[in-house]
Design a protein around this nucleic acid. Structure first.
Length: 138
RNA sequence: GCGGAUGGCCGGACGGCCGCGGGGGUGCAAACCCUCGAGGAAAGUCCGGACUCCAUGAAGCAAGGGUGCCGGGUAACGCCCGGCCGGGGAAACCCGAGGGAAAGCGCCACAGAGAAGAGACAGCCCCGUUUCGACGGGGUGAUGGUGAAACGGUGGGGCAAGAGCCCACCGCGGGACUGGCAACAGGACCGGCACGGCAAGCCCCACCCGGAGCAAUGCCGAAUAGGGGCCUCGCGCGGAAAGGUCCGGCCAGUGGUCGCAAGGCCGGUCGGAGACCUCCGCAGGGACGCUUCAGCCCAGAGGCCCGGGUUGGCAGCUAAAGCCCGUCGGCAACGGCGGGACGAGAGGAAUGGCCGUCCAGGGGGCAACCCCGGACAGAAUCCGGCUUACAGGCCAUCCGCGCAU
RNA sequence: CGGGCCGUAGCGCAGCCUGGUUAGCGCGUCCGUCUGGGGGGCGGGAGGUCGUGAGUUCGAAUCUCACCGGCCCGA
């Protein structure tokens, strides 16, 4: 595990990423194709949400993250709330727990993502990441 | 105080830590600082506009769609205000797609004699015949039953039996005149019952409406191509001769100029020609319903369809027919004038996460207190409306009842 | 942003335009019967807030309006 320090990645990479401290390693997935590829790769279900993960295989060391909250989650207010909680969770965990060069997609669940206590959500993501990477090690 | 009606407003507050989007500032940079950052419905997308592009413009007609008592407000509306009429309520007040059925067509099931220019099943009355059971002719439309609806209702007169046949009241139709801008209301008098309902069936009448939408549209860049197919209509006639052009005569001239050269090109004037150029006129044609007019174009003009590439950036992009206060006009909607405050602008899309204190609310408990817990809902070009969702709370006005004075 | 379609029995559909009859058809289901039993055949039956709420009409699945849910298309 190489915890990506802010300075390390920022200096040797393209240097075109002078983003705020937390976002140094995090980039948002925008393309539909990336979401589809992530869904085809590893997935780990947790009580609060579902995690999909994929090693991109390119040279970039950035960690990318995306969020999916379909209409099953609820109306637009609930969907927004679910997505924002997931983003907050990702911001807290992924810079330490994620691996460089990987894409992670967090999928919201109806009711659970919004109502589950925040501490449990943090725990869910940590466990999901360790399971995913353990599976990869085999 | 209780019950009810109407109009309006709020729809958590404060703080801490960590973050996000826009704008600004300092700095070489890293970074730091300042500031702003969802709603009354942001929703549904049901109407009306602004704005942009498309159609050459105007008028009329047709088609299609919409609106529908009257008057006013408005940029406009299917919205709002006031009034009228009808209905509901004890009242405050509420509800109503509320033009035309004597322009025409259509429909009115079942039941019933009969359902739309009336006719006659039972019945009643008169006359004739009679086998005394009834039958035939005529009169009548009150009574019966049916139905959502039956061609006036009630009472009296009248009659062979009856009937607006006659009379009174009510209803209905017409209506001088009066009030009102109007819808409409009142109504002397007349008629003597005729004129059923449905237009959210077709339709008629009046008024309104071109189409598409910010993924509009404009610009920059990249990439691909420098596309293909089909269809419609057309290239006509007459005139002029200033000019080009051509032909002829006369004059001038043996020159000037370009070229290595062959050789080419270059005047003035008069008359003529009219193919071509040009000019004028008339036809004819052309463009998303048709006609007319105007303009434009004419050797081309127009229409339809298919294919290839791109999914980057900038602008549009937020100040607006909006809100608040005062004042004047108006019953009001609203308008005039003066003053003031606020200030989202993203683009796979920010407006958040966690914690604490308080404030509403619910539950438990004698109590201190404990537990639960925050309605509906998230901007995407903007604005005016409508509709729908919404825990709970506040204010004002009005109506009825009870009590006190 | 704009446009269109659908909602009727457990399932798939008709009826709606042009209002009235008992809301009909197929599959499924239930009962009986033929068979030793199954399959299959035959006979009979049950099963419907016509998406919801208003309105027009004497009368609405049907006409009108509003709302709810689902599906599709175009830029």
């Amino acid at each position: 595990m190489t915890p990506p320090e802010a300075g390390a990645t920022g200096s040797n990479a393209e240097a075109a990423l002078p983003l705020p401290a937390v976002s140094v390693c995090l980039e948002v997935i925008a393309k539909r194709a990336d979401f589809l590829r992530a869904a085809q790769a590893r997935r780990q279900a947790m009580p609060g949400f579902l995690v999909q993960a994929r090693r991109r295989g390119d040279d970039s060391p950035t960690i990318r993250v995306g969020f999916t909250c379909s209409k099953k989650v609820g109306n637009s207010v609930t969907r927004n709330r679910a997505r924002r909680r997931l983003r907050e969770v990702a911001r807290a965990i992924l810079p330490k727990g994620g691996k460089p060069g990987w894409d992670y997609v967090l999928v919201g669940r109806p009711d659970a993502t919004v109502s589950r206590p925040y501490a449990d959500l943090l725990n869910d993501l940590s466990q999901a990441l360790s399971r995913i990477h353990a599976e990869k090690a085999r």
